[in-house]
Design a protein around this nucleic acid. Sequence first.
DNA 1: GTTGACATGTTATACTGTAACAGAATATCT
DNA 2: AGATATTCTGTTACAGTATAACATGTCAAC
Lengths: 162, 162
Amino acid sequence: MPRPHTFPSADHDHRHCLDEILTAAERLCRQRRARLTPRRRRVLEIVAESHAAIGAYDIIDRLAADGGRPAPITVYRALDFLMSQGLVHRLASLNAYVSCPQAGAEHGAQFLICHDCGAIGELADPGVEARIAEAAAHVGFEVAMPLVEIAGTCAECRRAAT
Amino acid sequence: MPRPHTFPSADHDHRHCLDEILTAAERLCRQRRARLTPRRRRVLEIVAESHAAIGAYDIIDRLAADGGRPAPITVYRALDFLMSQGLVHRLASLNAYVSCPQAGAEHGAQFLICHDCGAIGELADPGVEARIAEAAAHVGFEVAMPLVEIAGTCAECRRAAT
DNA sequence: GTTGACATGTTATACTGTAACAGAATATCT
DNA sequence: AGATATTCTGTTACAGTATAACATGTCAAC
């Protein structure tokens, strides 16, 4: 099952996790009358294949293995759709994309990026956003979209390192 | 004078500000025995020409106006040097570079990006970093390099909008 | 079944950043 | 000062990321 707010555990059953992500996406898109076409579904599937981020051109490579290499724009359009639905996020610091483990739930986007295993975690700490908004307001700045991407080491990798 | 932690005011004397940035850079590099060569100095000057961020290729265009268009790598090398000295920061969300108003002072990097005027402010709120580290630690994640880039509206632009 | 909206294909191109090697300038040591 | 080592710059080529513009196809609703 998708583990909101944190990293997959060591005994993570990713087959099941992937399945839940896809099922949730289908349900969500049905509710919203958004069209999760085969192409878009396949791109989501590829992005969600791991909890690491994947680059757009790596997605193209994976699609090419299915037969018929799509043009970059095709993948970017699918990613745009998936992002508009909150199913996928873009990580500016990596130029890469990651599936959202808690799609549908409104949440601020603070990403944890493990530079050992590459996995991405999400933090949804209202305190962080509040502190940022407060500090910004202190200099008269009104926050529209905070972007927080935190590189470091995840719990699993820290354990493994000792 | 450079205004640490916040945006330039309406009556900002940028000629003077730019001069201070360059002088401070020279002093800093002399202290550190780092070589602020003419090329590097010129790139810093261009980046510091405004408090908005500038793209690497826009820097190249500006240099070309001096006569003799340098190859991209030349500018990237100068930027790498300037970043290594903390004189310039890269904004991942913009793929662009901005001069640091408080070079030399050790400080965490939280950037405020005004999407009206393009100006970049820096926040150095230890509370924000602390809150992030705390929230991360809560899921066993050890922070190495937090990246915070906050889009919104600066005080000047908010005033102007009303 | 026609219409209109949305999705995809096709081609070309823009923007951002780096590799690899040669040559020039500067610092350091004797 | 001259030899040497280091650092900086030039040159060429290329890798990686993303979008523009226009044509064609597909689907849903009327």
